[in-house]
Structures are given as structure tokens and as C-alpha cells.
Amino acid sequence: MSKPVVFGQNLSRYYEVSGGVFKKPGLVKALDGASFTLEPGKTLAVVGESGCGKSTLARLVSMIEPPSGGTLEIDGKPAVVGSVEHRKTVQIVFQNPFGSLNPRHKVGTILEEPLRLNTDMDAQARRKRAEETMERVGLRLEHYERYPHMFSGGQRQRIAIARALMLNPRVLVLDEPVSALDLSIQAQVLNLLADLQDELGLAYMFISHDLSVVKHIANEVMVMYLGKVVEAGKTTDLFEKPRHPYTAALLSATPKADPAKKSHRIMLTGELPSPLNPPKGCAFNPRCAYATEECRRSAPKLEAVGVTQVACFHPLG
């Protein structure tokens, strides 16, 4: 096993919400104690529905905001918020390629921006580096002079990936990188990501809600629900034999593109609870078919059950 590049332990992020004049300010636990390691050449997928804290985790790892608690280490040393060192190691690609590129800048300017801000390369060296990276992600050199609105979604996502690669990072945080793309384009971008990982030995943190994509690309999966990790393990193990009732429901709710095998779905009743007012005990208990008194009273810890780690009092067979 290779040495991890990024190691996070018990990372959490709380937000204070003012509840109006007469209410007490509330505390939203957007992320509540997530631990993980990112290794070179490996992909860790973080899955969950909206409000589960997966995007908050992405923002913490890429240091867009500091954690409220827990530690984040890069190469065994604590990460410093906003340090050049951190920026050169971890970069992020966002979901929406239409929002993440400055509409008034040319592709060349967008790509060279990280170099201009963080290195003392001259204009020529920057341009050379930009052109190399463009070639690597499958853009043509004449795209250098164009504006983002002249590109399709897939090409824009290539530009965003190229920008993330400009500083030669070792970790890419991919926040739903293919969710906004069409199926045929999605395959192109996933292939590009796979190629880049093979060539550059990048570690990926792949945030997604689409389990079929996760199953295809990830080595390890972390399932989150309402700010907490409910299950984590190797992709094959987890998809083969989900232990947490939520993982099982999520897997069965994902539509399969095979009309011949109409599987029986586990229907979850009810809605996602609000993070402002999470249920007592296990966050999943109001929607869980196996919930007992114990689940309503106290929250289970993430523990090894078989080959995966599960936070549940009654893990599935």
C-alpha cells in the first residue's frame, strides 16, 4: 500500500444559523466527523443525497473553507489553510462547467491564472505549460484564444480539468464532475479522468450522487447521510453486500438500465430530514425499516463489520 497523500480525521464543519429575532441561533452540522485517506492512483468516492455533507467535505479538503474540527494532513504534515503548498497539492473541479469558468476570460487566461498567481514563470513558459495541458486533456491549441461560451459542456469540463492540473497537483477533488453532462459526453470525461489518473498517478476524491458512475470509477466508497459517514469500504464489497440499510436502499433506488431485470425496490418512506433539525439517535431511524428503540436513543459509531465499516446497530446480514 502506498503512502497516503491526504489524510483526514474526524473532519467536521458546523454552521451557525440565525433563526430570526425570537429564535435561538441554530447549529447545522453540515459535516460531522468524517475520516478518510487519499492514496496516489486511487479513487475514493463520496456518495449521498443532497444535504449529506459531501460537497462540504470537498470544500474542506480543497481548503475553500477551514474545518470546525478534526485534522487534515498532507504528506503527514498538518495542512495550512490557504498555503501555496496546499494549493499545489490539492485542486478542485466543480460540477457545473457553465458556472466554473469566468465568462469574460479567454481559455488561455483561465488556464494560466493559477501559474500567474502561484509561480514566477514568465509569459512564454506559462503559455507552453498551458498548451501542454490543453493537449493532454484533448483540447486543440487554437482553443487558447476562445471564450468559454463558445464551448459545449463537455469541452468546458475539459478546460476546468486542465485548469486544475496546471499546478501539477497530486490530488483532485472532483465535485460531481459529470452530473451536468450528457451521457455520451460523460463517458468521454470519465475516460479522460481515468487516463489522467493512470499517467499522473493522481489521487481522486470523487463526489457523486450517481451510483453507476461511482461503481465504475471508484476503488473505495464512503456513503454519507446527513453529515455523517454511514458506511465505507471497497467498492466491490459495498456494492456486493451493503450492510447499512441506507446504502441498501440507495443501491436499490438507483434505476438500472436493464428492463429485463425489474428488481424489487426498497422504497424509503418519508423525506430527507432537515439538517437544521436532525432526528435524535441514528439520523436514518425515521426512514429505516429496522429501527428499534436503541436507534432512536443513541447514534451508532462507525465500526468494522465484516469487510466494510458501518455505522448501524443492526447491520444487514
Partner: peptide, 20 residues
Amino acid sequence: LLAALPERAVGRKLPSIPGV
């Protein structure tokens, strides 16, 4: 299009449709 579905993929590479 069906071949490009990640769940139908066999290897690490997906058969993608070139172009837009």
C-alpha cells in the same frame, strides 16, 4: 449510447461517442 453507460462497462475505459 447504451454502450456508454457506466453500468454496462466491462473494462476501465468506457466506449464513448466521439465529438458532440
